[in-house]
């Protein structure tokens, strides 16, 4: 099984040189730590910044400089600030190449649910609906099963959905899977020590297994 850091590390391998990327809250934020130095990429924060830098040292904290998770951050050389309407123009306009976000559920046709548990949790969708409706490539980072052991890779989402037919790839603690355009989760890689059978057992939606499934290498 992969740790959260390893999920982030595996997703970082999907990042390509020259991309503008939006990272969601949680595991996706950790991806920034594993993007190889030789790649030139720009991280977008949807409140209004291109070019997110590392967290500030104690003496450089600025309450007027936060990311979409409201964490204090810094800027990098070449950063630019703008208003939130402009920020979402970049997102909807397809200028942000890659969106990495967390999810509560993903369905076998690429629907994602991550904003609401009726009667229990009402936090709001933030920018997630705009992001999943617009980005050309959407990767989900999540645990394969919920805390009570229920599969999060489903035939159909049971929770209110955030976007339809948008997720391209999912990296969980057990596996890397792609959403087939015809429907179904195509198993691409296994976490070290995890069998195809275990992944099958923990995937409620249709799992497509073709040939030998390689084990991830770290």
């Amino acid at each position: 099984m992969l740790s959260k850091e390893q999920i982030a590390q595996r997703i970082a391998k999907e990042v390509k040189n020259g991309q503008y990327i939006n990272l969601g809250i949680g595991i996706p934020t950790l991806v920034a730590n594993y993007i190889p130095d030789e790649l030139e990429v720009v991280l977008q924060s949807e409140n209004g910044l291109l070019g997110i830098g590392p967290f500030p040292t104690e003496d450089k904290i600025d309450p007027d400089l936060i990311n979409a998770g409201k964490q204090t951050i810094t800027m990098v050389k070449g950063s630019v600030l703008f208003n939130s309407a402009e920020s979402f123009a970049m997102i909807r306009g397809g200028h942000v190449h890659l969106t990495i976000l967390g999810a509560m559920e993903v369905s076998e046709n690429g629907d994602i649910a991550n904003w609401k548990i009726p009667g229990k949790m009402v936090k709001g969708m933030g920018g997630a609906m705009d992001l999943v409706a617009s980005a050309e490539n959407i990767i989900v980072a999540m645990q394969h099963c919920s805390r009570d052991g229920a599969s999060k890779l489903l035939k159909e989402c049971s929770l209110p959905i955030t976007g339809i037919k948008c997720v391209k790839k999912i990296v969980t603690d057990l596996a890397v899977l792609e959403v087939s355009p015809k429907g179904g989760f195509v198993l691409k890689e296994r976490a070290p020590g995890v069998s195809v059978e275990e992944i099958q057992e923990k995937t409620e939606g249709k799992l497509i297994v073709e040939g030998e499934i390689p084990e991830m290498v770290f």
Partner: peptide
């Protein structure tokens, strides 16, 4: 919100920014 004292419209962030 859960007790019904407060009305809330939750709107996607980009939609909110663009509506304004």
């Amino acid at each position: 919100l859960l007790s019904g004292e407060l009305e809330v419209d939750l709107i996607p962030q980009g939609t909110l920014a663009e509506r304004v």
